[in-house]
């Protein structure tokens, strides 16, 4: 009797163990070398997201993968490898076999980390598959701010604190780029927070004079009237008020957008890159994914594999100069 009970209890523990195994150690098989010829993909595709579960990189990748399972004809296993501003996940992707069975979720940080000495990633180390989203940075102020326009900020002599999502992140560099172009870089101060939500919280609580984050993140606060957008660092976005000027319209030569896309380690055969581009693009065009992007306010913007590679190369060079200019460079 006692033995039976003990066995039952041991079995319960074993069951718990198996459950943990399912949720945790789910890669491995995909790393096996593909048999060659045959049809690609013939085994599950690993998708490595370099940011935590729940963020825009993660949630869009999960949405896209949900549809792409069908369009690509293979299960897609997502895993989050986080840390080091994305460096951990990027390196995990780049060090995987270049067989097309491991793809990574790309963000603009992929072009920035090398210049800051965080992780040596050169555009030659990876191949773009596609870009699916583009999100311009928006500069906003609390509703009761004395600044009515970006020109007011430029014309004043004030020391202006700017909440960003973190030093070296795209929202920080985007504001530095704007400040340099507008000639106010000596009066503006970066106040780095942990992520866009905390930065917005600081501006909402009047802790900082300005906030620099992505349009989608700022959207709910613009709609509730708590934050006033002063300028867009990219093309106009349809859900923002029409009178919000772009930096170009203000005569400031600066443009910074956050992007989301997919990439693979360098060396993946070109035909596989094309197949991945096709099936993920088909998923991108699906109603399910489009609806999701629309409701979350993330702009869809497609670049094919070549265009994406070229864009990332150009951004890599631009950020190299910018990061050196603001004194964060290591090269």
């Amino acid at each position: 009797m006692t033995t039976t009970r003990r066995r039952c209890a041991a079995a319960a523990l074993a069951a718990a163990f198996v459950l943990a195994g399912c949720s945790g150690g789910d890669d491995g098989e995909g790393a096996e070398a593909d048999g060659g010829s045959g049809s690609f993909p013939s085994q599950p595709i690993n998708l490595i997201v370099p940011y935590a579960a729940g963020g825009s990189a993660d949630s869009t990748a999960r949405q896209l993968a949900a549809v792409a399972q069908d369009t690509c004809g293979a299960p897609i296993i997502i895993r989050n490898a986080t840390g080091g501003s994305g460096a951990v996940g990027f390196q995990a992707t780049l060090s995987s076999p270049a067989d097309g069975y491991t793809v990574g979720s790309a963000s603009i940080e992929l072009t920035m980390l090398d210049h800051m000495g965080i992780s040596e990633i050169h555009p030659d180390d990876y191949e773009g598959i596609l870009q699916y989203s583009e999100q311009p940075i928006v500069f906003g102020v609390p509703a009761d701010s004395p600044y009515q326009s970006l020109q007011d900020v430029i014309d004043s002599d004030d020391r202006v604190t700017v909440a960003t999502s973190g030093t070296g992140g795209i929202y920080h560099l985007g504001y530095e780029s704007m400040a340099l172009a507008a000639g106010i870089d000596d009066r503006t101060v970066n106040v780095p927070f942990d992520g866009a939500a905390s930065a917005l919280q600081a501006a909402l609580g009047d802790q900082t004079a300005m906030v620099s984050v992505g349009a989608a993140e700022m959207r709910p606060h613009i709609e509730s009237g708590a934050i006033r957008p002063l300028a867009i660092a990219g093309d106009p976005v349809d859900y923002l008020p029409e009178d919000v000027p772009t930096l170009h319209e203000l005569g400031i030569d600066s443009e910074t957008t956050a992007i989301l896309g997919l990439y693979a380690p360098a060396g993946v055969p070109q035909d596989r890159i094309e197949l991945l581009n096709e099936c993920f693009n088909e998923a991108r065009e699906s109603d399910q994914f489009s609806d999701y992007m629309e409701t979350t306010g993330l702009n869809q913007r497609y670049r094919d594999a070549q265009e994406f590679d070229q864009f990332m190369g150009e951004e890599y060079d631009r950020f190299g100069e910018l990061i050196d200019e603001i004194g964060m460079g290591v090269h």
Binding site: A9, A10, G24, A81, V88
Partner: peptide, 28 residues
């Protein structure tokens, strides 16, 4: 569960779960 599982099974299981749990955190 804790009463019935002999400690020679229980504690190794704890270590195994700890290893899996830590790995699954960031796949690291």
């Amino acid at each position: 569960l804790i009463e019935r599982v002999p400690s020679s099974y229980l504690w190794p299981s704890v270590i195994v779960l700890a290893v899996i749990g830590c790995y699954s955190l960031r796949s690291s």
